[in-house]
Write a protein that binds this DNA or RNA. Structure first.
Lengths: 114, 114
DNA sequence: TCAATATATAACTATTCACTTATATAATAA
DNA sequence: TTATTATATAAGTGAATAGTTATATATTGA
C-alpha cells in the first residue's frame, strides 16, 4: 500500500501550528471528544481570547471544524483534511489526555455546554 | 504491540523545532544520507551561520549527531533518540527530497566533503 | 609557520508569536 | 427589551525566532 506524501512546506506549516503545547493538547483531546471554547478556557487556564485565537488558527489550517449549538460553538477534528494522515499518526504518539476531560467533569464544567 | 507515547510538552518542543521548512527538509534528507554544513549551505541558499544555527538546534534536541571528518563536520540522524519513533513516522509522510542531493552532485559539490 | 577552508559563536535586527485587556457580536432567558 | 453568557476581533506588548554581518576557532596543506 502506498503512503500519500505531503509537501515539505505544507508539513512545516502544520508542524509549526502543532508545535505549541496548547494547540497540540487541543488536537489530541479533539481526537476523542468535541469541546467548546469555554471548556478549553477552563482546561488551559488562559484567557478566552487566547483560546479563540488558538482554535482560529487550527480552523484556518483546516484541522478543526466548528458547529454552533445554541450559544456555544463546538469544535471537532476535521476528518476531511488532506493532512489528517500525518496529524493522526502524530497524535498516536502522544500521551493520553483524557484526565483533562475527567477533571472538567469532576468540576461539573463539562455539562455546561450540553 | 504497545506504542510508547511521548509527553505532550516534549512532543510540542520537537514539532516546533521541525515546524521550520529548512530544519524539516534537513531531517528528511538525513534520513537517507549524511551531510556536512557546507553542503547544506549550497542546498538551502542561506548563510553558513544560519545553517550552523539550524543544525545546532537539531543537535541540542538530540535529533542529530555530529562527527568530525577532517575539516568537515558530518551530521547524521541520531538513531538513539527517544522521540525517534515520532520523528520517523512523521518523516514517512514527507515528499522525497533526493532531488536535492542529485542537484548537489550535478554541481559537483557533493564530493567536496568526501 | 602561514594561508586557505570549514565551522561556530557573538551581536544585531526585523518579524512572528502568544498573550493580555478592551470591545464587538451573537444567542438565550428573564 | 434587556441582562447574561459565549465567542470573536482589535490593539498593544514582551519574548522568541530566523536571518544577517563580523569575528573566533579548528583543521589541512603548502
Amino acid at each position: 500500500m502506498e503512503l500519500s506524501t505531503i509537501e515539505i512546506e505544507k508539513a512545516a506549516t502544520i508542524l509549526k501550528l502543532l508545535g505549541d503545547k496548547t494547540r497540540l493538547t487541543m488536537v489530541k483531546m479533539l481526537d476523542t471528544n468535541d469541546y467548546c471554547v469555554c471548556e478549553f478556557v477552563e482546561i488551559f487556564k488562559v484567557s478566552q481570547p487566547a483560546i479563540s485565537q488558538h482554535v482560529r488558527k487550527l480552523k484556518d489550517a483546516g484541522l478543526v471544524c466548528e458547529t454552533r449549538r445554541g450559544q456555544w460553538i463546538i469544535y471537532s477534528l476535521n476528518k476531511e483534511n488532506e493532512v489528517l494522515p500525518l496529524v493522526a499518526s502524530l497524535i498516536d504518539h502522544l500521551q493520553n489526555q483524557d484526565f483533562k476531560l475527567q477533571e472538567l467533569e469532576k468540576q461539573g464544567l463539562r455539562i455546561s455546554c450540553k
